[in-house]
């Protein structure tokens, strides 16, 4: 071996040996750390575990502890423990984001901390630097094609006289699910500040309402037993009904589609903010983003390329469909919550 070759090899070997522990440490930079994540239970948590937590653990050594709960209970837990929060990452939908911000529970997250934020589609980040949107769900009209002769095309069609006693709607206490009211208002010349068109339509079509569902399970059962012929449900649940063999048609009204977004947030005073940023970044990666559409047919918020067999089942699967996504003033929607519930109850009791 030539002297020069020998020196080159020796230098490379020495450098590699010296650098190996450093590289390894970088790879497993969260080893020994446990990130506390407020989960939503069931298949949702399993999916996040599989597509976000597990790959991240393999790469960085970060362990993720998922505690199943509801966003309302998690919010109360955070408010009660501001100095020592029980979670590092809190999930909230668009409506609960208003409450989380009002209670000053979450911190800003920028592209510098979570590089994949740059991949979020325009208009999907409703709260500026707060919250990382990772999933979108819509509440659209659906109908049973065997029971409804004339197809529905808008939210307003739910008030058609031929649907008397056959429409299932959610209880007004559901903040995102009751967006159909805003749709009724806006399709009929109203707005979030003028909900009267929705209320008067509902008043006229009161006899159409079969029941106000108090849970998604109750709503699904009404469609499974064919008690309900039409109603409003999330796009994912509409798909679930179809996979169970029910002839359910989802309606995408040309005037606009209403829905909400799910956000992940790094909690203020979180124990491991760096790990939380890494978790959010993995969620927004292609691998993380495709988990929920695969498992639950929930919509994506980034420019990830969707496989065709998934894309066909999602509401926002083309630029044209995305253009139909209606912007909601959540602050106003939540501020009017009590008055809205009271008004609906009054209409239905009257």
């Amino acid at each position: 071996m030539k002297r020069r070759t020998f020196l080159k090899l020796a230098t490379a070997t020495t450098m590699s040996t010296l650098a190996a522990p450093y590289v390894h440490a970088q790879e497993k930079k969260f080893a020994g750390i446990t990130l506390r994540f407020g989960g939503w239970g069931g298949l949702y948590d399993e999916t996040i575990q599989k597509y976000v937590a597990a790959p991240l653990e393999e790469r960085t050594g970060l362990k993720v502890q998922i505690t199943a709960g509801t966003q309302s209970a998690d919010l109360v837990k955070l408010v009660a423990n501001k100095e020592n929060p029980p979670f590092d990452v809190y999930q909230a939908d668009s409506a609960y984001m208003v409450e989380a911000l009002k209670a000053d529970l979450i911190q800003e997250v920028t592209e510098a901390e979570v590089p994949n934020i740059k991949r979020i589609l325009p208009g999907f980040r409703e709260y500026g630097e707060y919250g990382v949107p990772y999933s979108v769900f819509t509440y659209i009209p659906i109908y049973n094609s065997e029971l409804v002769e004339q197809p529905l095309t808008t939210y307003t069609d739910l008030t058609r006289p031929d649907l008397e006693g056959r429409v299932a709607l959610p209880a007004a206490t559901f903040d995102t699910w009751s967006l159909y009211l805003l749709a009724l208002a806006e399709e009929n010349g109203g707005s979030i500040s003028n909900m009267e068109p929705a209320y008067s339509l509902l008043e006229q079509a009161k006899s159409n309402i079969l029941a106000l569902a108090q849970s998604t399970v109750a709503m699904i059962q009404m469609f499974e037993t064919k008690e309900a012929s039409a109603g409003v449900i999330s796009d994912a649940r509409g798909h679930e009904l179809r996979t169970k063999g029910h002839p359910i048609v989802s309606v995408y009204p040309p005037q606009g589609i209403y829905g909400a977004t799910s956000y992940m947030n790094v909690v203020k005073n979180a124990k491991h903010p760096e790990a939380a940023f890494a978790f959010l970044d993995q969620m927004l990666s292609d691998e993380g983003m495709l988990g929920l559409p695969r498992a639950l047919r929930l919509g994506v918020t980034t420019d990830v390329k969707l496989p065709d067999e998934i894309a066909k089942d999602l509401t926002f699967n083309t630029p044209e469909r995305i253009a139909l996504k209606k912007k909601v003033d959540w602050q106003k929607w939540m501020a009017d919550r009590s008055a809205r519930i009271e008004r609906i109850n009054k209409i239905l009791r009257g």
């Binding site: 939503w40 239970g41 069931g42 949702y44 502890q65 199943a68 509801t70 998604t216 399970v217």
Partner: peptide, 16 residues
């Protein structure tokens, strides 16, 4: 801390 009871697990499961 992950110590979820069975009824809570079931309740949250039903949501999705």
């Amino acid at each position: 801390g992950g110590n979820v009871t069975l009824p809570v697990q079931l309740f949250t499961y039903l949501d999705h």
